[in-house]
Amino acid sequence: MRFKRLNVMYFIFSLMGGLLVLFTLLPILRSFLAQTPSILIEEVTDKGVQEAIFNSVFLSAISATVAAIFGIPLAYILARKNFFGKSLVESIIDLPLAIPHTVAGILLLFIFGRYGMVGALFERFFSLRFVGTKLGIIVAMLFVSLPFMVNSAREGFESVDVRLEQVASTLGAAPFEVFKRVSFPLAIRGLLTGWILTWARAISEFGAVIILAYHPMTAPIKVYDVFTQFDLKHSSAVAVLFLAICLVGFVIFRFLAYGGMGKRRQ
């Protein structure tokens, strides 16, 4: 038997929490209900809108994957080793969280612009440009979303008992074998969470992207573009389409990562 006692504190806490949930949910629901079918169809069939949404989904996925490839090794080192300057490295990794996104875009321009260090190098040797290209969008997305990958992956590795790695090494496994067969599979949830958060952060990026590349357009920029050139009705139609795709993607990945909603930690 469970006691059915209404505690005042829990009642008040639930009320406050409920308001928070509504605050998130209400604008989303309202925007779906506000749509005029004809405008929605007009925007769905618009080539520019389709392209922008595709760019967003695809480029953010690439950006999250690049973040994973470089972020996972770093996360493993941070989770397992102590070294001089470790807290400095940690602070640098978290820095993009504190930089306003338009500012991040400006900073990136210095390095990845046509005359920037990396920008000039790529132009010279690979004939690749960052400004106004998909490559630039990926760079902008990567910069603002990388902390999520590194931090989640690091948490994932920290949740793996060091002794499992030690026992693997006594059984003859060299460090990379230990990583591959023990640490990586056991941290997989943290890594997937990291990928999803990074992807979600990247797909929603506006400020840094617009400075490096107004064109080719990603969905957030398209929403802004339509808003300034047409009206709220048209831009909200694009917004809702993009939102729907983001939500579907988010639910699918969460399901893959946690094996169901609401089961955040085992």
């Binding site: 002794r163 499992l164 030690q166 026992v167 090494s169 006594t170 059984l171 003859g172």
Partner: peptide, 14 residues
Amino acid sequence: PEKRNIGFIFQDYA
């Protein structure tokens, strides 16, 4: 450790 061939039985089995 991986070259010593020394086994280790932990308290919590690992």
